[in-house]
């Protein structure tokens, strides 16, 4: 019996979708993993702590601590708040902060690197190489002053408002990631097809727009994913020092527990452990994302 050789549109569309899904299988799995992690962090009941003013700075006169048990897996704070709920809320806030800061910071870094990449005045990127060298020198100079100290001076000196916290993080992430992004552009410049394009008389900006930027903008996602755990840890460290204006953070929880270490060690131990596990998960996911997007080495900016 003869069969119609031309497949139906539905069948063709189905195969196309299946092929695209198969191509994007890793991206889908990663997106699902991130989705699950974020939804778990943001879900749950925060009624216990919502609307309640949280003051970690002083111990109440008669603390109502409870050691970890079946009802309170991590125990409670001096005012009776469940530490597991509190830690999860703190990490939810910390991770949301890290997502916003890393994304905007990397975008800023991308824009800074573009300033050094576009140069219509020279062929074969001779001037651009000088600019890359300049950017590398500036970046090396900036690294002499640890970013953590910059945060401490600006945030600790001023009394740290949330806007300042966001702005300083975005600026530092932007400045430190610009070198890595510029390095990617430099490597792209050295590829044989780019050099052939320039030899054949194509304009450098056109090559960059059509070839380099699509490749590099994909890698930016990997860079954001890798920076997430770093930003979470930095924010926690600043919160531990008391330079984030007292906003809820695992760093603040650990710091609040240090005044009652002998009486209630769980107030310090469990939030730190919880934060470490969450940062580890973000770190693993970030590395996998960066690896799949061929991001290569990422900046050590703290």
């Amino acid at each position: 019996m003869m069969q119609n050789r031309k497949p139906s549109k539905i069948k063709k569309g189905y195969s196309l979708v299946r092929a695209r899904l198969w191509q994007a299988r890793f991206a889908i799995v990663l997106a699902m993993a991130y989705g699950l992690l974020f939804s778990w962090l943001f879900s749950g009941t925060y009624e216990e702590m919502q609307g309640r003013p949280i003051d970690f700075s002083a111990l109440p006169e008669s603390p109502v601590w409870e050691a970890p048990d079946a009802d309170h897996r991590f125990g409670t704070t001096a005012d009776g708040t469940d530490l597991y709920v509190l830690s999860r809320a703190a990490m939810a806030q910390g991770s949301a902060f890290a997502v916003v800061v890393s994304t905007l910071g990397v975008l800023l870094g991308f824009l800074i690197s573009l300033l050094f990449v576009f140069d219509g005045g020279s062929r074969f990127g001779a001037h651009v190489r000088d600019r890359f060298t300049l950017l590398r020198s500036v970046s090396r100079f900036l690294r002499l002053l640890p970013a953590m100290m910059v945060f401490c001076i600006v945030l600790g000196g001023s009394g740290a408002g949330p806007v300042l916290l966001f702005l300083s993080f975005i600026l530092v992430v932007g400045l430190y990631s610009s070198e890595t992004i510029a390095e990617w552009f430099e490597k792209e410049d050295r590829r044989p097809d780019r050099i052939s394009g320039e030899v054949l008389g194509l304009h450098r900006p056109r090559i960059i727009k059509s070839r380099s930027i699509p490749v590099i903008s994909r890698r930016l996602i990997g860079l954001v994913a890798t920076l997430l755990p770093v930003v979470i840890l930095a924010e926690m460290a600043l919160a531990f020092l008391g330079f984030t204006g007292g906003s809820l953070s695992c760093g603040v929880l650990v710091a609040s527990g240090t005044s009652s270490l002998l009486e209630a060690p769980w107030v310090t131990i469990y939030p730190g452990l919880f934060a470490g596990v969450i940062v580890l998960l973000f770190s693993v996911l970030g590395r996998v994302t960066n690896f799949l997007l061929r991001g290569g080495t990422t900046p050590d900016f703290l």
């Binding site: 755990p229 460290a237 531990f240 650990v254 730190g272 770190s283």
Partner: peptide, 21 residues
Amino acid sequence: FGIAACFPGFWLVILISLYSY
């Protein structure tokens, strides 16, 4: 080392101090 680096340094210091205490 990668796993240990994910845990806040200040928390590790407090843990060591608590243990030794």
